[in-house]
C-alpha cells in the first residue's frame, strides 16, 4: 500500500511539473512581467543558429532548412564587447562584429535575432545595465527592420555569465525584457550547463546549450564541444529545475597547444592538413552523432520530457554535410 501511495505522489509531482512547463501565456508581454517561470512554445519547433558575420546562405543550406522543416533561425546580429570609440578613442562597450545581410531570409522562416554579450562587456557595464539594455534592444530591432527580417516575436541574449557578472547581466535582461515586453516581444536567454542550477532566470524563454561543455584550454579535456560525461555532471534524471529548449552542436575544430598551453583554434578537422612545430600539439574535436544522441537522451530525461524545441548550432554546409539526413532528423526528433 505504502509503495502505491509513493508511486501516486511521484506521478502527481511529475505531472504537475509538466503542466507548468507547458503553460503558455495568452499574452506574451503580460506573462513576462508577472511570471518568472519560462515560456515554452506550445508547438515545439525545429530551429538552427546562424553565427557568421555575413548572412549569406548557399543552396545546400537553403535545402537543409527546407528538407528538415526548420521554422526558426536564430541569427547572431552582433556581439557586445569592450572596444574603443572611433571618435574619442576612449574605451567603452559597443556593438562589434555586426552581421551584414547579403541573402534574404528564406520564406516561411521565423528569425530570432540573437546578441552575444561578452562577459567583459558585462563586467564593464555594472551600474549602466539599463542604458545598455536600451541600446541593444534598439539596435537589434533597427537591424531587424532595416534588413527586413520579418516581424520579431522573440530576441535572444547569449552570455556566458559568471558569478561576478550575474547580477549585472540579470539587471540588463530584466530591463530588456521590460522594453521588449511593451512591444509584445519575448526575451530568450541561453543557459550554459554551469548556470543550470540558477533558481530563476530573467528571460521569457530559455535555451540550454549542450555544447562547449568542457574546458577548451585544458590539454586534458577529451572533447570540449560535447562530452556526455561532462553533461552528466550537471543534468540528473528528472532533477532539472527548469524547462528548456535544447541546443546541440554540429561543428568541429582543431584545438592547438604549444608546450601544453592553449594557443588557438583552427577551423577544420582534417589531421593531414595540419602542420606543427616542436612542442606543438593539437586536439581534433568533432560533434559525433552518437555523442549528441547520448546527450540528447540524457537532457530529455533530465528535463522530464516536456515538449521543447531542438536547435542545432549552426547553419554551415561544411559541417552539416558530415551528417546524414536521418542523423539530423534524430537530433530534431521529440
Amino acid at each position: 500500500m505504502k509503495r502505491h501511495i509513493t508511486f501516486i505522489l511521484i506521478a502527481l509531482l511529475f505531472s504537475s511539473c509538466g503542466r507548468r512547463a507547458q503553460q503558455a501565456p495568452s499574452s506574451p508581454s503580460g506573462a513576462s512581467h508577472s511570471a518568472p517561470s519560462a515560456v515554452i512554445m506550445e508547438t515545439p519547433e525545429r530551429a538552427i543558429y546562424f553565427w557568421k558575420s555575413v548572412f549569406k546562405i548557399n543552396d545546400y543550406e537553403t535545402e537543409f532548412l527546407k528538407g528538415h522543416d526548420i521554422t526558426t533561425l536564430y541569427i547572431k546580429m552582433f556581439d557586445v564587447a569592450p572596444d574603443r570609440d572611433w571618435n574619442t578613442g576612449e574605451t567603452g562597450v559597443f556593438p562589434v562584429a555586426t552581421t551584414r545581410f547579403v541573402s534574404e531570409v528564406p520564406e516561411g522562416i521565423k528569425v530570432v535575432p540573437t546578441v552575444y554579450i561578452t562577459l567583459e562587456a558585462m563586467l564593464r557595464s555594472a551600474g549602466k545595465e539599463e542604458d545598455l539594455a536600451e541600446k541593444i534592444v534598439a539596435r537589434v530591432l533597427a537591424m531587424a527592420s532595416f534588413n527586413i527580417l520579418g516581424p520579431v516575436e522573440m530576441v535572444q541574449f547569449d552570455c556566458d555569465w559568471t558569478a561576478s557578472a550575474r547580477d549585472s547581466y540579470f539587471a540588463l535582461c530584466r530591463r530588456a525584457r521590460e522594453i521588449l515586453g511593451e512591444k509584445g516581444i519575448l526575451l530568450s536567454g541561453t543557459v550554459r550547463l554551469h548556470q543550470v542550477a540558477e533558481p530563476e532566470y530573467p528571460f521569457d524563454h530559455r535555451v540550454l546549450m549542450l555544447y562547449n561543455t568542457g574546458s577548451i584550454k585544458n590539454p586534458d579535456t577529451r572533447n570540449s564541444i560535447i562530452d556526455y560525461d561532462e553533461v552528466k555532471k550537471y543534468l540528473k534524471r528528472g532533477k532539472c529545475p527548469h524547462s528548456f529548449d535544447m541546443a546541440y552542436p554540429t561543428f568541429g575544430w582543431t584545438v592547438n597547444f604549444k608546450d601544453g598551453q592553449f594557443t588557438g583554434l583552427t577551423h577544420g578537422t582534417n589531421p593531414d592538413s595540419l602542420s606543427y612545430g616542436p612542442g606543438e600539439t593539437f586536439r581534433i574535436e568533432t560533434s559525433e552523432i552518437s555523442e549528441i544522441l547520448k546527450v540528447k537522451t540524457l537532457a530529455d530525461r533530465a528535463a522530464g520530457n516536456p515538449p521543447h524545441s531542438n536547435i542545432i548550432y549552426h547553419l554551415d554546409s561544411t559541417n552539416l554535410s558530415k551528417y546524414t539526413f536521418d542523423e539530423i532528423e534524430r537530433i530534431y526528433s521529440d
Binding site: 572596444d83 570609440d85 571618435n87 559597443f94 555586426t98 539596435r139 533597427a142 527592420s145 532595416f146
Partner: peptide, 10 residues
C-alpha cells in the same frame, strides 16, 4: 555617429 546607431526605416 554613435556606434550603436543602425539606420532603419522610421
Amino acid at each position: 555617429y554613435s556606434r550603436w546607431y543602425y539606420p532603419s526605416a522610421g
